[in-house]
Design a protein around this nucleic acid. Structure first.
Lengths: 145, 145
DNA sequence: TATTGTTATACTCTATAACTATA
DNA sequence: TATAGTTATAGAGTATAACAATA
């Protein structure tokens, strides 16, 4: 547990915040399919992580109201990106899962963003890249805390 | 210029992309004023960096059409966050600049996000934090490349 | 009676097209 | 004639309220 009141640590946190937000925005702009709304993309990402979920669970995870999720799921289904099946235990609920098409699209999206980021990293020297590479697993841990 | 085809470097880029996007999303959720739309916040950030700009310049920087910027600027003015003045050389144009209120709000926003991120960093050990701190200036350089 | 999901409807944000004023 | 900004109008995305089916 680092002492963040120590000199320089606050400045480092400020740098991290600023850089992460800016890089995150720029990465977000690197899209594979312009026809998908941000929330639709996010739902596909959630399904990729969770495997499957009910519309209600998706609405909670995406911080969206249930009627909005109804619409989003219907659009994704029409585009062939998700599949809807009856819930095994509760006939009120449905189970949403991603299709192979969606999986392939997400993989292509990751590839495109990785390529863009790698291109940006070309502008670093060996020493800078070494520092960044050493910090990558730490950033990943932080992102999941 | 690092060799990104080398073993492990591609994995590091993938970690960075994933972590930066996730952290960026989580940071974005830490808002000070829920009543401002993402673009309104972004315009204030742009004005903070540039000092002042015409509506046309703002529309180009925010990747928004001119009529949308007209509306955004009008809303921000109504909220007391920007000031509109006539352009000194061209009577067609206007000059938009942020008010002291907006400046204070942005500072509070940065403070809140820094505090949230610092809280997250408490979950790291000294060694991890040292790596992250060393990488902070590199990330910042990358974000501005 | 409570919960899941849907339908109906309204609001917010952004876009396009047409207009005004100035260069 | 071209450019900066605005007005009028339409489309996408989300919200709230009311409803249906099931627990």
């Amino acid at each position: 547990m680092p002492d963040l009141s120590r000199d320089g640590n606050a400045a480092a946190v400020n740098s991290l915040r600023s850089a992460v937000m800016r890089l995150g925005r720029r990465l977000k702009h690197q899209r594979v399919d312009e026809s998908l709304s941000p929330t639709e993309m996010s739902v596909l990402g959630t399904l990729a992580r969770c495997g499957s979920a009910t519309p209600g669970e998706l609405a909670r995870k995406e911080h969206v109201q249930p009627p909005s999720m109804t619409r989003i799921v219907a659009l994704l289904e029409a585009k062939g990106l998700v599949r809807l099946e009856p819930h095994p235990d509760d006939r009120r609920q449905k189970v949403v899962s991603q299709t192979e098409t969606a999986e392939a699209m997400l993989e292509e999206s990751r590839r495109k963003r990785n390529a863009w980021l790698a291109g940006l990293c070309e502008g670093l020297d060996e020493d800078e890249w070494a520092k960044l590479r050493a910090a990558a697993p730490v950033l990943e841990k932080l992102a999941h805390l």
